[in-house]
């Protein structure tokens, strides 16, 4: 059963990482990061259950709270970018290079 949870988490994490690297839409990037964070939570809760301790579940609660704060900041930045450039594609944010 443990293996199934880990495979699920690995799939979620890889999907998130793939999205993070390929998405051009800033909202898509935020969603990808959420997927990665939730993969972490799956691993934590699964291992907590496996070891028979509550530590994993407690850790998952903390990471959830952190992820929420992170998402709020991310959305604020996307709105900021949109107000400035009327676009949420990250291609609009490539002024600085090199």
């Amino acid at each position: 059963m443990m293996q199934a949870w880990l495979i699920l988490a690995a799939a979620l994490f890889s999907l998130g990482l793939f999205g993070l690297l390929t998405r051009r839409n800033a909202v898509g990037i935020l969603l990808s990061v959420e997927l990665m964070a939730n993969a972490v939570n799956v691993v934590l809760v699964a291992f907590g259950r496996w070891h028979g301790v509550a530590d994993g579940q407690v850790f998952a609660l903390f990471t959830t709270a952190i992820t929420v704060a992170e998402a709020a900041i991310g959305l604020a930045l996307v709105i900021l970018l949109y107000r400035q450039r009327q676009d949420v594609l990250v291609d609009a944010a490539t002024e600085m290079r090199g």
């Binding site: 994490f13 998130g16 990482l17 993070l20 800033a26 990037i29 935020l30 990061v33 990665m36 964070a37 993969a39 972490v40 952190i66 992820t67 992170e70 900041i73 991310g74 930045l77 996307v78 900021l80 970018l81 400035q84 990250v90 944010a93 490539t94 002024e95 600085m96």
Partner: peptide, 18 residues
């Protein structure tokens, strides 16, 4: 350039957290 600077920092920071 600040929003772009912050967005780049944010994406790296969020990925690093995960």
């Amino acid at each position: 350039k600040a929003p772009e600077a912050a967005l780049k920092l944010y994406v790296v920071s969020a990925a690093s957290t995960a």
